[in-house]
């Protein structure tokens, strides 16, 4: 049912279209079962950035303080978005891997589930 408003056919402006981010797009990243970071992190990234550069250049700055981070075997990591699991091609860009503006990427690191295996931290 359309919104009821004083102005007929009222529609707010889209406040966060990709064109407003100076060439970047927003990407949200969540490391599952590591609730020391208990919310997805939001970062602006170029859509053409290779997925491998996300792993090497971006994720350490966000999650590097966690003792599990250095132990991650990136070949074993399981990735997913709201559309389901996917296997990234590290050489291809975020866009070519299906990562669009405001996509939330969740990743799981089998065998590494928080400090001392406790997902709450």
């Amino acid at each position: 049912m359309p919104i009821k408003a004083i102005t007929p056919d009222y529609h707010g402006d889209f406040k966060d279209g990709v064109e407003k981010f100076n060439g970047n797009q927003l990407v949200n990243i969540h490391w599952e079962k590591h609730l020391m970071f208990a919310w997805p992190m939001c970062v602006p990234l170029p859509p053409g950035m290779p997925f491998g550069a996300l792993i090497e250049g971006v994720l350490p700055g966000i999650f590097g303080a966690h003792p599990n981070f250095k132990q991650i075997d990136w070949n074993a990591v399981e990735w997913k978005t709201s559309k389901g699991p996917f296997k990234p091609d590290l050489a291809k860009s975020l866009s070519d891997n299906g990562i669009g503006h405001k996509t939330t990427i969740s990743f799981r690191t089998p065998g590494l589930n928080g400090v001392n295996g406790n997902a709450v931290c």
């Binding site: 949200n28 969540h30 020391m36 970071f37 919310w39 997805p40 992190m41 939001c42 970062v43 700055g61 966000i62 303080a65 939330t104």
Partner: peptide
């Protein structure tokens, strides 16, 4: 080495 988050949240 106190823990601090440095990235903005979703």
């Amino acid at each position: 080495t106190p823990f601090k988050n440095t990235t903005l949240p979703q």
